[in-house]
Design a protein around this nucleic acid. Structure first.
Lengths: 146, 146
DNA sequence: TATTGTTATACTCTATAACTATA
DNA sequence: TATAGTTATAGAGTATAACAATA
């Protein structure tokens, strides 16, 4: 049996893989890819945005955002609107269909959380979240230093 | 503050993202992509394999394996050897450089586990791993049913 | 001058289908 | 007939560089 810390890391990755696969099935049922769903999720949580700010938020190139927005305009999930004051920029906005999709995704996310952790007693789950939070903060700090 | 189960799920995904980014930096330092590293990792843990069995293990198409092996032969990490009994098949084997890379990757993995979880007291970490294991088993079972 | 977004180009990962050699 | 792997083709995601319009 591997060390406890390696088992913890492998466990995180295994569970994350299962969750990701579940998300991909959700995406496929809606005919959307992970990259496009990321963009929709970003719009859903942060509101309408220029392509430049989307590129920064998603940490991809502006050229990449052009392609993703093209596809999402074609599929009817977003629209390009003129920026009110900067005529170089466009504002990408969710359509009704886009908002419905994001709402379904959020609901699916909550359902998954309940399915996964609903049976874990509250004190154990609270301790679990604590370890997760501490570890994430520690790691983020270490990565900034390096 | 979101429900505890949603916080647990989001925490898993956030930590997994950080770990994945760390792995990608490691890969880039070695001039390898995630897909190629998966194949090397598979060879490192399960030993030499035919392309067909690699396609099954990685759950990608045989055609995809051809491309990945082509690239890894070019970069000197694997070789194609004739199959001892089946002249249709090739056996993909790690070179010395491939084995060194996998060994470094495993070492980096262990170091990361220690960095992440080394400061967590053993009883808390054991409880953490228990929740992780239970949740993963529950989820895997549910997905098989569906 | 600097910034926003697009066109041009290219690379990787991925898939399916048709094909060859072998089982 | 069935299987292992390759060639042919295609599409998505990603990147950089050059460019046009605007700030």
């Amino acid at each position: 049996m591997a060390d406890l810390d390696v088992r913890a890391l492998d466990g995180i990755l295994a569970l994350s893989t299962l969750v990701t696969e579940d998300l991909e099935r959700f995406e496929q049922r809606h005919g959307l890819s992970t990259a496009r769903v990321h963009l929709l999720w970003q719009l859903g949580t942060a509101g309408p945005a220029t392509q430049r700010s989307l590129a920064d938020a998603l940490r991809v190139s502006p050229r990449n955002v052009t392609g993703l927005v093209d596809a999402l305009v074609d599929s009817g999930h977003v629209t390009r609107e003129p920026h009110p004051t900067d005529r170089r920029a466009v504002v990408v906005t969710l359509t009704d269909a886009g908002r419905r999709f994001v709402a379904q995704l959020q609901k699916s996310h909550r359902n998954l959380a309940r399915t996964l952790f609903g049976a874990v007693p509250e004190p154990r789950l609270a301790a679990f979240v604590d370890v997760l939070d501490e570890t994430t903060r520690t790691f983020a700090r270490l990565m900034e230093e390096a």
